[in-house]
Design a protein around this nucleic acid. Structure first.
Lengths: 261, 261
DNA sequence: AAGTGGTCTAGACCACTAC
DNA sequence: TAGTGGTCTAGACCACTTA
């Protein structure tokens, strides 16, 4: 009896997977992403073992592993042999240089010294609203950081986030954060930055730039416009950086391990 | 008898894999990379079927597939269901925008119109030699392209390659190439560009820049210094681009699918 | 010793492409 | 119809971590 020779009829529905997708492992991947979005597991926490997850989603270990493989490739999960699989967490010594791409022209990488300059509530302009996926006029927080490398002021970051996603953010909390900004987003708001989009162009220093960077007004600077994304491409932060590249430079993409097209 | 309960003792040597690595699938991956470096299969050609390769390397299909999975993730191979697995080939409509990262500020992507400006043989400076991994004083070819987008001149590319890797390169062949430069490298020299490193900074237009880009001398420009790599991180091209970002901009990395650090 | 992820196997069925 | 890659299974053994 039982005509099933091997495994399961792949075309049958996966009753345990909460989110549908073309294939079983995609369903599992989406299911895990959904659980992450629902904050079932937070930054740095371990997710259930492969055995348990394979039972939860009703798939074999191999299929479950393929789903996790992709989430690890996306830097959303981290595996530690013998320990478990964890929600990737931003740390000073981990992931930092994937998002901080300014180095000295001789190649020397160092952590920036951040000075908080200002903090304000404001209403989103049309441009800011489009970048953050919110309504024009919606409330946002804007703050400015000055970054120094090797003791030299190198760049100014102007950062904007939506108030609805960062409810209760205060200048004091920002000033007193113990680690990186993206780590702070995780710990205080359970917002996980997993990707960015950046566009670069040349601009000239305005009055504020000139003062903060200690360069003459009109000095050419590198402008980096970044949108940071959480799961499912949800935009969570707009950041405009002005970089003095007299002795520093920006490290571009490596064009391998890069998305197709 | 035969105490082997399941599969093979993983620790035993893989006698068929020509290159050793920590695990079987890494050995297979290195073996395929070695065959590619030896030009056993050229750009655009199909490699043997998974069945044949698994027999050649003495591993199961699953292990063979894991090796190929990584090579596909590295954009070195391309799979086509029902057809086979192929050596990735640079084409106008494929891979082009992974290496060409300048777009109009409204986001519009278009193919550049390339004008060949000059061609020369020269000796490698210390800096060029270091970038290309050759001896200072070794012979190199240098050529300059002017690129226009939407009918407007936007950037100047100064390209240098080692004569020992591009023996017989002529200005005529360059001018008459039918497709992209990296496709030309593949077809004419069997050199496969699979990755790049880029550093960006702001410069001001020198006399040549000003003339070719039709901007005043001293205009701030974006400088992109790229080293292009073939298999095994072999540097094969140095390219210095000067970009007028008045109406265009540079698309940075996306910081997902990116190598760790 | 128990539990976790890491590697590997052997084979089934599906989807697609070419002839 | 034959051949290819794509998905999935069920389970073994290895390596690592914690206790």
């Amino acid at each position: 009896m039982s005509a099933v020779k091997n495994g399961v009829t792949q075309t049958s529905a996966a009753s345990h997977a909460p989110v549908i997708g073309g294939t079983r492992y995609k369903e599992v991947k989406n299911g895990i992403l959904a659980a992450l979005s629902a904050k079932e597991w937070k930054g740095g926490e371990a997710i259930p073992s492969e055995k348990k997850l394979s039972e939860r989603f009703g798939v074999s270990i191999g299929t479950l592993r393929k789903a996790i493989d992709e989430l690890v490739a996306d830097n959303i999960l981290v595996r530690h042999q013998g320990l478990g699989t964890f929600v990737a967490q931003h740390q000073r010594d981990r992931y930092f240089f994937r998002f901080f791409r300014v180095v000295r022209q001789d190649g020397d990488k160092t952590y920036p010294t951040v000075t908080h300059m200002s903090f304000a509530r404001a209403k989103a302009s049309r441009e800011v609203a489009a970048a953050l996926g919110i309504e024009p006029g919606a409330r946002v927080f804007s703050f400015v950081n000055r970054l120094a490398l090797h003791g030299e002021t190198v760049m100014i970051d102007s950062i904007t986030v939506a108030e609805e996603r960062f409810a209760g953010l205060t200048e004091a909390a920002l000033r007193e954060r113990p680690s990186t900004l993206y780590n702070f987003y995780q710990d205080a708001f359970h917002i996980n930055v997993v990707g960015t989009e950046e566009r670069l162009r040349v601009v000239t220093a305005n009055e504020t730039d000139a003062e903060l960077l200690d360069v003459p007004q009109g000095t050419p600077l590198l402008e980096v416009r970044r949108i940071a994304y959480s799961y499912h491409q949800e935009p969570v932060e707009l950041r405009i950086s002005h970089v003095n590249t007299a002795r520093y430079e920006y490290v571009g993409p490596s064009a391998s391990h890069e998305e197709p097209i």
